[in-house]
Amino acid sequence: MNGPVVALCPCRPGESLDVGPLRAAKTVAGEAGAPVAAILVEAADRQIEQARSEGDLVVWDVRHADLSPLDDAERRGPVFVEALKQSGLGDFRLAVLPAGHVGAALAAAIGKSFDAAVLGACAEIVLTAGGVEARRSTCGGRVEIVVAADGRCVVATRDASQRGPSRRVGEVRPLRLATPLPDRRPVERVGAAGRDRSVATARVVIAGGRGIGGDEGFDRLRDLAGCLDGAVGGSLPAVDAGWVPVSAQVGQSGQFVAPEVYVAVGVSGTPQHLAGVGAAARIVAINTDVDADIFRFADVGIVAAWRDVVPALVRRLRSSPEAFSPDERDP
């Protein structure tokens, strides 16, 4: 098979592009010398430019006459399917989507239309003679499996790699579609989402532990969550102390959370607590104790008292001029 590797990028107006699928597609293709394309649906100029600047790929700027920004995967899936067909990319070897429920919904649509194998959220994706091989985490992060499939494949990725070198900027090709789409779903949107966001579905979770010391500290964590489109959770000692409602307890005996970023403040990092944190979350730890277990699992660490860090961080995030968010909800 010589087909291309295609990154599928759902876009949201006013946000920066999630370049994860694109970089993953380039990495996979690069090793096998396969051509790379990206399909961006309803992208803003700036998002197109972002994709193009990744280099060495064809960027398909796809628009559909009947698509609105609030349309969900039910109507976006067919647009991607049609785009793959009309762009001549229908013989793709591998389609790469962002991990998460939107990516999963699009993967299902593409899998069905192209009779492609849906492999889930994978890492270490490689092209084989007849298809794809990839590694996936299972059993609550305790077992890793390697799956292989022949023919067309669809994977999701949480690639967070840096931009690789490229020889030339990408070429942009517009594609205008007007194929009929399924009826809009009768989903009604009402008011604002709950004031205390659920930790279970939040993209960013700010978790406080025993080290926070009291209610006042949790108010500061809520400030931080507000800056970050996040929700506040707590470890068991924090819930025991009454600083956090039991519904926001993260850990084995509480909620399982799968955010993109987990900011652990004054949390020691017991296995019971970390069992409630999805393996894909990037962990940021702030703790006074350099020997705290949490630093063994953290991507980024600050050894300092939260009082010296959190309020200053809130001030800085509030004062910086521009905010873009690669949100994946409601593409």
């Binding site: 489109d229 970023v261 630093f295 980024v300 600050i302 860090v309 995030l317 905010a323 968010s325």
Partner: peptide, 27 residues
């Protein structure tokens, strides 16, 4: 291993703010 931020607390806060930039809330 964990990337410990270094420098003054102010520097560390600035670096962390930059790291968290992609998850900023929309106004």
């Amino acid at each position: 291993p964990c990337r410990f931020l270094t420098g003054s607390v102010e520097n560390q806060v600035a670096e962390l703010a930059a790291y968290l930039q992609p998850w900023r809330a929309l106004r």
